[in-house]
Design a binder for these strands. Sequence first.
DNA 1: CTGAAAGCGCTAACAA
DNA 2: TTGTTAGCGCTTTCAG
Lengths: 302, 302
Amino acid sequence: MRQRVLAAAEELDYQPNLVARSLRSQRSATVALIVSDIRNPFFTDVSRAVEDTIHKEGYALFLCNADEDPEKEMLYLDQMEAQNVAGIIYSPTRQAATHYQELRISTPTVVIDRAVHASDVDQVLIDNTDAAYRLAEHVIKNGYRRIAGLFGEASVTGRERRRGYEEALRANGLEPPLGQVVHIPPKIDAGLETALRLLDRDQPPDAFFTSNSLLTAGALIAIRERGLTVPEDIGLVGFDETTWGRLVEPPITIIAQPTYEIGSTAAELLLQRVHQPDRSPRKVILQGRLHMRGSSAPRPSA
Amino acid sequence: MRQRVLAAAEELDYQPNLVARSLRSQRSATVALIVSDIRNPFFTDVSRAVEDTIHKEGYALFLCNADEDPEKEMLYLDQMEAQNVAGIIYSPTRQAATHYQELRISTPTVVIDRAVHASDVDQVLIDNTDAAYRLAEHVIKNGYRRIAGLFGEASVTGRERRRGYEEALRANGLEPPLGQVVHIPPKIDAGLETALRLLDRDQPPDAFFTSNSLLTAGALIAIRERGLTVPEDIGLVGFDETTWGRLVEPPITIIAQPTYEIGSTAAELLLQRVHQPDRSPRKVILQGRLHMRGSSAPRPSA
DNA sequence: CTGAAAGCGCTAACAA
DNA sequence: TTGTTAGCGCTTTCAG
């Protein structure tokens, strides 16, 4: 009998209605990943890892792009909860991170990349302050002195990386150059405009320290527009491994984040929580890796 | 009365259950975009445009990454239909494109980037053969003679671009170099490996013609690994504007696709079809724009 | 205008 | 094992 029903279903190409199933069972085999900016290679790399991992367990992935807009982020969060997804992985904007508790998310959630002040949620982060410290220290050791800082304004990540950068400067007897440490939208355009403005000053920086790869790209475009040479005229360092960072001349010194590991770990934590909701939350802190390349080569004077 | 209910809903922070709503009304305010590869900047750019456009009309976007895998593509296609999305925008793999009719998709659909042989579906494409012809012609005019071709194997787009390339060669009295016109997975790794192999031949190419930006990146990495110089030792051209294509030295000659227009047009066509299902299907063909840059500079001998 | 009732397609619980 | 039924949370229709 069972056989006959199955055969008939096959015959008629029956496709169960997932909406009805989800409504009835209050479950679903989908996970949502809400990223801050789909054009940031960090997030596309993470999304690949998340999808690989959950796909093995039979889950499908909805990818949502908040585009660094807190309102869109809220919209997608609500939407995903209302869609009854099994779980949510997401990187909150600074606004959401600050008021995380008030969001009262009832769906299992893992926060990635941007820490929230909440002890009852799984998080997968990197030690941003430490990574930024090491990166800045490397730049200083190589003889750069007026190191401007371009940091994303949308995330706590940007704040943490600035802290590491400033600590490294002070530990080496330097002061953050006045008016050259800025928080801006973490996009290429903003990086370009700000870098141009800083380069056109009376006392331009001798290096740019950037907090993500879009800002790095913007700064590099600005450097090229002004006809300057890296690293002779100006050094450049940033975060995240990209295709282009190793192809430009000179290649860019960066802190590489373990994107695949971040994504797969977040996915694993999420699935564990889905199956075991009262498991105690974990905070996984991974390390960035410093890749020293030509864009921060030692200054001749140093 | 209505007022009081609304006030109470506000008070209790009532969130309607979208699953139930969708089940009952057989509609939903979500659109799915199924892309071939989330790490290809072409698709992330398109997704931005799609989202911008539908967001204005109150729709949310589910982004799904088929990762050039026909099975995953089918899975997401089925899943999205079963999820009762309002519409689907997608770029089919070659397998799906060839058997498009057999998919029997009942949800409103717009095909982008990769043409299907079906007259009853909206499509937004570019004229690949023409674009590839113009790009190849430019390379030939600049004196390159042994132009190897790296084309994506997963899409009809790769085939069409090869046709334009071969037509341009023949129209200029050249033959496609034997064994140097290949269809490979449209990924950086495959581009790198293949380019290395071709460079190590007795008669290596004097230019690479690539059919997407991931292959371009792979070829460039190979060129660098062999210590060759662009364009003196070897020319390099490809498709799609990327951040890095203008930052490397020399910058890369490419056909720029109007990504934003592709995405926004597809989104508009889809929403029109959602509201007016029996509207006659349209095929919108856009043009690529040739950007001549240093990577295909005239050969001294020419 | 307000209220009541049916039912979207499924699953889970219970009866035969 | 097989069949029946209730109900997930909404929207839509129809009656009052």
